[in-house]
Write a protein that binds this DNA or RNA. Structure first.
Length: 944
RNA sequence: GCAGGGAUGGCAGAGCUUGGUCAAAUGCGCAAGGCUUAGGACCUUGUGUCUUAGGGCUGCGUGAGUUCAAAUCUCACUCCCUGCACCA
């Protein structure tokens, strides 16, 4: 049987649309506002995006059925450079992007050409995303849609920044970033060749005075604590150096560096000097005041740091190797022994310096490549950082990392060192234009100060009150709240809201999206009433968010009708007191934590986040999705190919929160076959529905009821914790299995079946809304199932006792299968057929003794209560060496046990194609009867 | 480097909070049989190892420890993944 999913999807999507079920307005019900991170329209959606949005929608549909008035809105994030970047790359006719758009997303050449206009890019893809979301069956209230560059929304962002400044959370500071000297632009990851992120690190530039002048040699170092062990400086004799004035100091640096550093310091070159000439000079160690020589270091790079390196042969393998090399060339080098200043706990080779010890570790000799030296260096640095402590100087005894910080601070305080920012990427970083990227210092930048102590404290305290799913992520939030610090808030290029205190810049794109969810609660009201941006003055937001001022006054200042303002405020009050925020977990370190911070800063506590749900990412057939692997599947293609519901099931219900969802095409088939089973089942049930039997309920019926109640209970608990996969294992997979088992075991009560399937279909609705609607209507209902109530478990139908018997029957069936298998191989049974199978149920006294044991966990008690059968009871019970292993009460009852087995007798006869005899141990003549255990009947296979 | 998370059977992934019911759920893969015009669809059974009656042995990164008992608790080690700021 084939199901036309595409037709089915469209049919029900139209119905929902017509009846506006997902357009939410405040009413008397309890409410929830569910938002997902808004998509960035620089590309179409692919199945990787589906997990977040699908999970959000599934949860929204669940909450609807639980009786909540659910608002699930959506907007688009257009801020920043990616949209511009697409337009730029299209304008430059970059083949790669044109190929992607054509081959992956099937976009026509005509439309691609239009994409040289960034507005068209954003407009095209937001329409495409919206279309895909509708095809997926998402219950979104599209009336509230807005984008991050809408003028109305910008007014709110402006208000936000005025408030942040008022509170002192907006501060000025210096900022270091990757910079293209050619284009005069900040360079981020997508502005570089090969998309590398320029990595900037702060290191220390230590000044070594020249012994006979007021100039100094600037040495860049990661390890100022080793200053005590410096024996000389290294320069590169083949390079040009300059003497330059930097921050009022006369410093020697390499010529190449002087160019690079001009973006960080004000540099005036005094004179040029050959590296070779520097070798005649002497320098003074700023800590020990020793006078040391300058020598040629083969490894000194003229374009990193300062082009001058301090030499610590005892602790830096490279320095040691360079000195040995010079020595071989007959050049005078500092005398050994080299001073050791750090010791590693647990390593005490007093006879050798650490750099030599570690070089030896990697088999170094004077013909070795620098690769070996590199490895020795890494190993030594790692050990010293972990277990090293200072052995000399004012900081002796201090752990190395602490000493490093302390010495750096001291040097800076005494004007013997300055901070220096360098790019630490292994390979040089180039801008797309081909120019090498440098570090630029930007002065007087605005930052959001997430390091602010009071603010942080407020967030930290509130964090405990937020419901976080999965709960295990709470720890991450805590760490990130503590770690978050100054965040640059303005940016020179890209789309977005103008920065209020520097209109040449825009507000950085993460920072303009921290409170936008609140805007959904009244964006439709603003649109409907044609409110103009100039009317959305700060007073409006002060009033709506913080109840500041009086309605009439605000209406007068803003020129907005007081009824409208009032409506906005009431809508916010209604929706924003219970919110659920959804995104992928990768946004925890950035967006989600900033989202909490900004709410705490700007709103009264009732509007602060109530719960945050994060999911993993989608992987495809076990592999990460990426363009280079060619496994990026556009969402619209997948929806068409598999149908919305099988896809929802296969991605959304394929993983619980906190782990990745592996999309496998093969599992779609399994899902589809179960869906088809349900269709056939419902069809069949509908056809015979009115022929309900009059027979009484059998054990198997009570079993099905018990399973149903338990299923509802478990699924509800799981769903409340957004454990969608686990919930659907129970609702979908297990239900199909139970129906099959019910049928096999001779269950046939139509009324029971109808009740069961109805509740199951309701529970399927959140993840498979289209299929559920169809099945619901096949069952003769006219309402929309998305409007139905989520089932409530009928606890009185829970029957664990009955399930115990059913489990015993199951286990017995398995044992019989095993036993047949084994006995068929026996010599005596070769060529024979099974005549009959005896199932021998243990004697009543065994059941009694076992029950007592299960209840009391005491063998002695069971023996005492056994009365006249003490002796055989003791013997029987002795096999349960550890009564504690028996969990809970079993209350096995002879009659019920026999009834249960009798009910499935004909099923067993069919299954094993043999006569089945059910007897009790007492009446049995079988030699195996004594083996019968209470929870495990004895089995005898009789071959003939 | 800093921070966080993880290591379970051929693979993916439960279980580990509250140690025993765990040879270890579920799904995939694989094997055999069935169904079928056919099937990559579906159904049944099997899938560490030994075993001619439902049993035993080994086993959950490595090493040690706690315990009558450890995948589960403690410690050390090794390896892996993710994020690190202007990038959405």
């Amino acid at each position: 049987m084939g199901i036309n999913y595409e037709e089915l999807d469209e049919k029900w999507q139209n119905k929902w649309n017509e009846s506006k079920v997902f357009e939410a307005e405040p009413d008397g019900r309890k409410q929830i506002l569910i938002t997902a991170a808004w998509p960035y329209p620089n590309t179409a959606l692919h199945i990787g995006h589906f997990l977040t949005y699908g999970t959000t929608d599934t949860y929204a549909k669940y909450m609807r059925m639980k009786g909540y008035n659910v608002l699930f809105p959506m907007g688009f994030h257009k801020t920043g450079t990616p949209v511009l970047a697409i337009a730029k790359r299209i304008t430059a006719k970059e083949e790669e992007i044109i190929d992607d758009l054509t081959n992956i997303y099937h976009i026509s050449m005509e439309n691609i050409e239009k994409m040289s206009d960034p507005n068209f890019v954003a407009q095209y893809f937001s329409a495409s995303v919206e279309h895909a979301m509708k095809k997926a069956g998402f219950g979104i209230d599209w009336r509230r849609k807005f984008t991050s560059i809408d003028p109305l929304f910008s007014k709110m962002v402006e208000w936000q920044f005025y408030k942040l400044k008022e509170k002192g959370y907006l501060v000025k500071g210096n900022h270091y970033l990757g910079w293209c000297p050619n284009e005069n632009n900040a360079v981020g990851q997508h502005d570089t060749k090969h998309d590398v992120q320029p990595e900037i690190e702060r290191i220390v530039m230590v000044k070594f005075r020249e012994n006979d002048s007021d100039a100094a040699f600037a040495c860049a170092t990661y390890r100022p604590e080793t200053l005590y062990g410096v024996t000389n400086l290294f320069i590169n004799e083949n390079e040009k150096y300059v003497l330059a004035e930097i921050n009022g100091d006369k410093l020697y640096i390499s010529k190449k560096v002087s160019e690079l550093l001009s973006y960080q310091f004000d540099i005036k070159t005094i004179k040029e000097i050959e590296g070779n000439e520097l070798k005649s000079k002497m320098a003074i160690n700023p800590i020990t005041n020793e006078v040391i020589p300058l020598l040629h270091g083969f490894f000194v790079k003229p374009d990193f740091g300062t082009g001058i390196v301090m030499s610590v042969p005892a602790h830096a393998p490279f320095d040691y190797v360079a000195l040995k090399k010079l020595e071989k060339e007959g050049i005078a080098i500092p005398k050994e022994p080299y001073k050791q200043v750090i010791e590693i706990r647990g390593e005490s080779d007093k006879n050798n310096i650490p750099s030599l010890v570690h070089l030896a570790l990697f088999g170094w000799n004077d013909k070795s490549s620098s690769d070996i030296v590199e490895r020795a260096t890494k190993e030594l640095y790692k050990k010293e950082a972990r277990n090293g402590y200072m052995t000399v100087g004012d900081y002796a005894g201090m752990d190395e990392p602490a000493a490093r910080t302390a010495i750096t601070e001291m040097l800076k305080k005494e004007n013997k060192a300055l901070d220096l920012y360098v790019l630490i990427n292994e390979e040089d970083v180039y801008c797309r234009c081909g120019t090498r990227v440098v570090v630029k210092q930007v002065n007087d930048q605005w930052f959001i100060d997430y390091g602010n102590k009071e603010w942080k404290e407020g967030v930290r305290n509130y964090l405990d009150k937020i419901r976080i799913y999965p709960e295990k992520m709470r720890h991450s939030y805590k760490m990130i709240v503590d770690w978050l610090d100054m965040k640059a808030a303005e940016r020179a290029q890209g789309l977005g809201t103008k920065f209020p205190f520097n209109p040449d810049h825009i507000i950085e794109s993460l920072s303009d999206s921290t409170i936008y969810m609140s805007f959904y609660t009244f964006s439709n009201i603003l649109h409907e009433n044609n409110i103009k941006p100039e009317n959305l003055k700060g007073e409006f937001f002060d009033y709506v968010f913080n109840s500041k001022g009086d309605l009439e006054g605000v209406s007068k200042t803003t020129g907005i009708d007081s009824l409208i303002i009032d409506k906005c405020k009431k809508s916010l009050d209604y929706w924003y007191t219970f919110t659920s925020r959804h995104s992928a977990s990768e946004l925890i370190p950035s967006h989600l934590t900033m989202y909490i911070f900004n709410h705490v800063a700007l709103f009264p506590e009732k509007f602060w986040p109530k719960q945050i749900v994060t999911n993993g990412m989608v992987i495809y057939e076990g592999e990460k999705m990426s363009k280079s692997l060619g496994n990026v599947v556009p969402l619209t293609d997948a929806l068409k190919k598999y149908g919305a519901d099988p896809l929802r099931m296969n991605i959304v219900a394929n993983s619980d929160l906190g782990m990745d969802s592996d999309f496998r095409e093969a599992s779609v088939n399994g899902i589809k076959s179960r869906i088809e089973y349900l269709f056939a089942f419902v069809e069949n049930l509908a056809a015979t529905r009115n022929m309900g039997t009059n027979e009484g309920l059998k054990n198997i019926d009570f079993w099905l009821y018990s399973r149903l109640s338990k299923k509802i209970k478990t699924a509800t608990e799981l769903f409340d914790d957004v454990m969608i996969k686990s919930a659907y294992d129970e609702i979908f997979y297990n239900s199909v299995n139970e129906l099959k088992r019910y049928n096999e075991m001779g269950g046939s009560n139509k009324i029971v079946l109808e009740e069961y399937i109805t509740e199951v279909i309701k529970m399927l609705t959140p993840v498979m809304p289209h299929i559920s609607e169809e099945l619901w209507h096949m069952l003769g209902n006219n309402s929309l199932i998305v409007n139905e109530k989520w089932p409530v478990a009928n606890e009185s139908l829970l029957n664990p006792q009955l399930e115990v018997y059913e489990n015993i029957i199951d286990a017995t069936a398995i044992d019989i299968t095993h036993t047949i298998d084994l006995t068929s191989k026996m010599q005596d049974n070769k060529g024979k057929k099974i005549e009959k199978i005896k199932i021998i149920i243990a004697s009543e006294w065994k059941l009694d003794a076992y029950n007592v044991l299960a209840e009391t966990k005491k063998i002695s008690e069971a023996i005492t209560r056994a009365g006249k059968d003490k002796e055989k009871t003791a013997k029987f019970l002795s096999q349960f060496k550890n009564p504690k292993e028996l969990v809970g009460r079993l209350d096995l009852n002879m009659k019920e046990m026999q009834n249960s087995f009798n009910e499935v007798k004909s099923f067993f006869e069919n299954k094993f194609n043999s006569e089945i005899v059910i007897e009790s141990e007492n009446e049995s003549t079988s030699g195996r009867s004594a083996r019968a255990l209470p929870q495990k009947p004895s089995i005898e296979i009789i071959w003939k």
